[in-house]
């Protein structure tokens, strides 16, 4: 902070002899080898007709594929939003002084992190077998709402439940770590100014916790983009399942998988750039 070391030396420095940096010949050998392997793979992929690149090009902007892509993005967004909101609530519960609240949160996190998301998806999809009817009623009182489970739990709601509820468990741990990372003195200072607990959380604690929360949540978003492909098992037409639907008809399996993969690559690349800027924004002033 205060390193103003003023040089008082007035003698001219002796002319320095030329510095010869250490050579690394083996690095060059390894680089050449890696380049050769990469070039081999690239040539093989580009020239092997079985990849059917013209078919890939044909389907890249296919209407059905773009529809699946939109569904994948929707699912990612909705499941992450659900995960963040519910996860923050779980994190606050987990940090509560009330033993019941923190235990419930702990149990939730334990359960939803332990059961594979794939199993959860299939489970929610078959929820109707467990409870044929869903009702909302006041205990010992009138029924406010009632519907057949199969009407409520569509593939979309099952997908959202499976992905969102599991994501909340992961996000809760991330948010908790973020909240805990804010020094206790911040809360004390805010309390001493007469701020109420809700104001302190929203204005003081959460913005500072964001710095710790953003990088892992960014990773979770990227991982969620790919997790949505699990939803293909419950016949929801997101990107992968759309590709599968097409190749089931045309038998162009490989090119369509490449189409899906290319789209995943594009989305994740864009998200990675976004994450980079978001991290820089939150790192800036602290």
């Amino acid at each position: 902070m205060n390193g103003n070391a003023v040089s008082t030396l007035t003698d001219p420095l002796p002319p320095a002899e030329r510095v010869v940096p250490l050579r690394h010949p083996w690095t060059w050998v390894a680089s050449a080898f890696a380049l050769m392997v990469a070039a081999g793979v690239f040539t093989s992929v580009a020239t092997n007709p079985a990849f059917q690149w013209p078919v890939v090009a044909q389907y890249m902007l296919d209407e059905q594929i773009l529809g699946g892509l939109a569904r994948t993005l929707e699912l990612t967004l909705a499941a992450m939003a659900m995960g963040l909101v519910l996860g923050t609530a779980l994190a606050v519960m987990r940090l509560s002084r009330n033993l019941l609240l923190s235990t419930i949160s702990w149990l939730y996190i334990w359960f939803f992190r332990s059961v594979p998301v794939l199993v959860q998806l299939i489970f929610w999809y078959n929820f109707g077998a467990l409870y044929p009817k869903i009702m909302l009623r006041i205990p010992f009182g009138p029924v406010l709402y009632s519907a057949s489970t199969n009407a409520v739990i569509t593939p979309l709601t099952a997908a959202l439940a499976g992905l969102g509820l599991a994501q909340a468990a992961y996000t809760a741990e991330v948010v908790r770590a973020g909240i805990v990372s804010v020094p206790r003195g911040q809360t004390r200072a805010a309390m001493a100014l007469g701020m109420r607990p809700a104001t302190i959380f929203v204005r003081i604690i959460f913005p500072q916790a964001m710095r710790v929360i953003i990088p892992p949540v960014g990773n979770e978003v990227i991982s969620m983009v790919k997790s949505t492909s699990l939803v293909s098992v419950i016949a929801l037409a997101e990107l992968l399942y759309t590709a599968q639907l097409i190749y089931a008809r045309t038998y162009e399996t490989i090119p369509l998988l490449i189409v899906a993969s290319l789209w995943y690559l594009i989305i994740v690349s864009i998200l990675s750039v976004g994450q980079h800027f978001l991290e820089r924004y939150y790192r800036h002033h602290t």
Binding site: A190, P197, P207, Q208, H285, T286
Partner: peptide
Amino acid sequence: PERHVARMRQRVGMVFQHFNLFPH
């Protein structure tokens, strides 16, 4: 309740050893 205590604290300023300014 906390909100009553918060109202009282408005009349009392406090300065801490480690400043505790809001870094953001």
